[in-house]
Design a protein around this nucleic acid. Structure first.
Length: 233
DNA sequence: CACCAGGCAAGTA
DNA sequence: TACTTGCATGGT
């Protein structure tokens, strides 16, 4: 009885890289913001935009005595920030006009439909996902990143690295769409938000170090001998 | 210099 | 349905 390949891969990546401790953001509001800002954009660019928002008191900058209240106050200011100013603050993240509108769409939906962030995050996962996907500018990956990393729900996040890495190593069919890839993970992995959290973070780490487009060969990649290891499955 | 990065929506045939 | 294109900065 062998482990499933997708579980064996997770264990190997965890051993190779160690825990990644995602998401790199302090508050759920910052994580939701980062999920929009990082769309097709390097995280290093997002960091500068987030620093600008913190400098403008539009995101909580450090854990104060009442983090929830601080976050709620930031949310109120952030959703009321005029689009041109917001765009200027997030400029380093690229697509700044588009993302200013998308971020506003997201925050406006939440603030208009729910009492506060705690109310929003108390809802069932299915309701959260439908509401997120109803926002113009929030697609499956952004919605699922928010569900997993801000709401702590066991939803597996599929991104460009997931397609590229698992396709390149012929571990999953390449023609699959987002939902099919997602199911191939969630069907065989235990329904555990911490596991999904760490696995996706490890996939991104692997992609950054070994599986970028500009680096077509990756002889050092920790996934290279996986087929041998799971032989007999 | 060209290419790429933790997507998404809108347009075309 | 199945491609294609616009959006934009900063790093390699």
């Amino acid at each position: 009885m062998s482990k499933h390949p997708l579980l064996a891969i997770y264990q190997r990546l965890l051993k190779f890289f160690g825990p990644q401790q995602w998401w790199p953001g302090e508050s759920p509001l910052e994580i939701m913001t980062g999920a929009v800002l990082t769309q097709n954009t390097a995280w290093s660019n997002v960091e500068q935009a987030i620093a600008n928002l913190k400098g403008a008191e539009l995101l909580p900058s450090s854990a104060g005595p009442d983090p929830a209240a601080a976050q709620q106050a930031c949310l109120a200011r952030l959703v009321a920030t005029p689009a041109p100013l917001l765009a200027e603050l997030i400029r380093p993240a690229g697509y700044y006009n588009l993302k200013a509108a998308r971020l506003h769409n997201l925050l406006h939906h939440l603030t208009s439909q729910y009492d506060d962030l705690a109310d929003f995050f108390s809802r069932p996962t299915g309701e959260l996902r439908r509401n997120l996907l109803a926002v113009k500018g929030i697609g499956p990956e952004s919605a699922d990143s928010i569900l997993l990393y801000a709401a702590n729900r066991p939803i597996f996040v599929v991104d460009a690295y997931t397609y590229r890495i698992f396709g390149r190593h012929q571990l999953l069919p390449e023609e699959s769409d987002y939902h099919l890839i997602q199911e191939s993970f969630s069907d065989v992995l235990p329904e555990d938000a911490r596991l999904y959290n760490e696995y996706h973070a490890l996939i991104v780490r692997t992609g950054k170090e070994f599986c970028r487009k500009s680096k077509p060969r990756c002889p050092e990649c920790p996934l290279n001998s996986i087929p041998h290891e799971v032989e007999g499955y």
